[in-house]
Design a protein around this nucleic acid. Structure first.
Lengths: 218, 218
DNA sequence: TCAAAAATTTAGGCAAAACTAAAAAAAATT
DNA sequence: AATTTTTTTTAGTTTTGCCTAAATTTTTGA
């Protein structure tokens, strides 16, 4: 059985490895969890004992098969609960993160699988992020971050890969939501920012924001 | 902000005080929480510092106003989540307890008040127990435990004041559920047990079971 | 290549919440 | 009223997960 702290470490490692089994550094985890590197080292030892990660001193850490499954299950729970909050309880998309962060740690496979059915097996959460199925597999999607497209492309916003409320409120301000059409007008090489058109209006967005916008080319 | 352990203590004190501000003993709390009296003493000190209980050494403990409100809120959350599990996710009434025990600690008043609305402001949980409203008030009910009725009474089962799955499975076995009509035939004074009729069938139930059955006289 | 800088680990503490054993207070019994 | 029993509290440990400071390893770059 995993503790709350362990689950948060596994989730952080999964995120930092871009949802693969890549190696992640101690410092990166410390930054992600707003804790100290020494705390990370200790926890990694516990996770290693439980065979949830592979670890070599000074070389970084990667998820084991069972650690990956555990982490994916938490992501699945997080995203399904976000769907519940938005579609059944009328939460706004920028209000769901903190509550889902708590709900994702509830332990009951019957609960989460029933919730999945109750919601009609959604494929993405309210931010457009894919929801792993009961076997831990992601539905495939043909989207890429806006930051990876060249100029002169017309695309549709499929998702936002970050649920920080301050980002989501900013996107609301730009009138940008899932399904919005965007035209990528110009890439500014100096800072990797973009000029884009949303609803016939010219906007400038930073590289940091461009990375979070998942676009499907039209 | 209350910790998980603190919330479980407050809930135990509320239960042992019969949902009043009565004084409760250290030993009773230890028994309820399956812990040791010395642990209880320590935790009570913390709760006293936070003004959640009133406490005098060797004299027992009672909930303060804010402790009572905190504890009632947990009961409200527990019972609303039980409603959700049964009415929306098709859980059986004997499967909900452990999951609700986890869900009751989720902190978000928006969540619980939205859930209340989503469920249609239910007055009782799936076991017939009353659900405190948003202000922490119980809806009144005109039911009493079966154990407090005399012979020759016809009544309706309004609730079951215990959600131990082994009790609920036993009640299913007796074909007894919320809404069942029962005839109290005979009280056996020796052990305070009862002969009752459920669906035209004669049954014998112990005092322990009789105490859990909330009956409205017909 | 070799010293400085950065990243990581180790060592030693702290707070929460549990435990056991022992001491102290209250209640029960003779 | 005195003694025994029960209840409660205190004192001293343990585990988890965090911290700071110091030591060690790796990386960088002159």
């Amino acid at each position: 059985m995993t503790t709350l702290a362990e689950e948060n470490y596994l989730k952080a490692i999964l995120k930092l490895s871009n949802y693969t089994l890549e190696i992640v550094s101690t410092n990166a985890i410390a930054k992600e969890l707003k804790t100290k590197a020494s705390s990370v080292t200790e926890m990694i030892k516990k996770l290693t004992d439980k065979k949830l990660v592979n670890y070599q001193k000074y070389k970084g850490v990667s998820l084991s098969k069972s650690g990956y499954k555990t982490a994916i299950d938490i992501v699945r729970k997080h995203r399904l609960w976000e769907c519940f909050l938005v579609s059944k309880l009328q939460f706004d998309w920028d209000e769901v993160h903190d509550v889902a962060e708590q709900l994702e740690h509830i332990k009951s496979s019957k609960l989460i699988d029933s919730l999945d059915i109750f919601l009609g097996n959604p494929k993405t959460d309210p931010h457009g992020e894919p929801i792993p199925n009961i076997n831990g597999e992601f539905p495939k999607s043909n989207s890429l971050p806006l930051s990876e497209f060249p100029n002169d492309i017309i695309g549709e916003v499929i998702g936002v890969s970050n649920d920080d409320p301050s980002l989501l409120k900013y996107l609301d301000f730009l009138s940008l939501s899932i399904g919005s059409k965007v035209i990528i007008n110009k890439k500014i090489d100096f800072d990797n920012s973009f000029e884009i058109v949303i609803n016939n209006k010219q906007n400038h967005i930073s590289h940091k924001v461009a990375k979070t916008l998942l676009i499907r080319e039209l």
